[in-house]
Design a protein around this nucleic acid. Structure first.
Lengths: 192, 192
DNA sequence: TTCGCCATGTAATGTGTTACATGATTGT
DNA sequence: ACAATCATGTAACACATTACATGGCGAA
């Protein structure tokens, strides 16, 4: 393991909290990190095997009745790898948003849709914020750091909802631009 | 073309603004939509061929001296496809953030790192916000909608920077939790 | 003549989702 | 008996980056 894969990072972290089966990892991911770090079975099971072969985790057979089940836990090497990753600076982040792409082209494709797109995006973000607020209300408190993560999810989505709501109004009213386009050279109008 | 690919959407939009070569599409993407919708050569060139075969765009040879170059523009079918996509509701978005993952596990791995992680993330977001502000200052104004997109990038990243800065202080001071964990069953402590 | 940019493209690799297949257990 | 949930896994496909290969043009 020279580099942990994206899925390896969630798995190792989940197992640091407590030992789990692949199924439990998946269902906990779906109830917690999904909004900023998802993982599917197609990644989890193969990754569990790789991590096991690399000696970072160890599986123990513990069937429930006739139903097979493997509980994984971190090895010492796994803890070390996890701590190394966790202590390294430089985190990646990605933001991909189709509404922004549509808005970017709205002037060329359908200027009147700009307000509508904004309102749709605002609604979407508000729904996510509400879903996360339900999580907050329904769950007993976690430790401070993972509660902060949940809080961030709520606040971020609320921010997005508010921002696009305000922007939709601005489009409705046709708020003038602070900066006007230079009409000469169309090449130069593209922001660099 | 039953469904436009992610790359097809940027390409069609870029060509709606004006005809371009593959190289120009890539460099404009890098200067504009990159923060919320990236595309690499490995996607652009094959996609240009597919779109051309599907009749949505049309390429014209226009070499500069002995340097080959193909300028693409939308066909009528391409305009139609673009407008269809643009008018559909339901936009996808993805947010992936490694700092959040680290924070989520901080309690189990290294509780003292929580403040540090927050501060790193705040700095990162502030840098992105500054980079986008430089774009704003250096470029002549675009149309209202694509200017809004730029503004959103700035505001969003500034929001993230502020949020994590505040959170870092909270971690420093060990602000008490609003909700305390129920100590009995570790299973139940996982927020659902 | 060398460097940076314009210009096109492919191969290898990595990342990730969806759908499917299989089968046991628990609760209604 | 049936549905939901527990549990593991694979195959097909889609998406995306990186690195490489090729070569012309213009300026220092």
């Amino acid at each position: 393991m020279k580099q942990l894969t994206a899925t390896a990072k969630v798995i190792l972290g989940m197992l640091a909290m407590r030992p789990r089966s692949g199924y439990e990892i998946k269902s906990f991911v779906d109830r917690s990190t999904r909004f900023f770090w998802a993982a599917s079975y197609g990644q989890i099971y193969p990754e569990l095997r790789r991590l096991s072969q690399a000696g970072l985790i160890e599986g123990t057979d513990s069937p429930t009745g006739g139903r097979q089940r493997t509980i994984y836990e971190l090895t010492r090497a796994g803890w070390h790898e996890l701590e190394t990753w966790h202590s390294e600076p430089g985190e990646h982040f990605d933001y991909r948003d189709e509404a922004m792409l549509k808005l970017f082209f709205a002037g060329a494709v359908a200027p009147k849709r700009a307000a509508e797109i904004s309102r749709e995006r605002a609604e979407q973000a508000a729904e996510v914020a509400d879903a996360l607020r339900a999580v907050e209300a329904g769950a007993p408190g976690d430790d401070q750091a993972s509660y902060a993560v949940l809080r961030f999810g709520i606040d971020l989505n609320q921010f997005i909802a508010d921002w696009f709501e305000r922007q939709a109004l601005a489009f409705d009213e046709g708020i003038p631009l602070a900066k006007l386009p230079a009409p000469e050279d169309p090449e130069e109008q593209e922001k660099g």
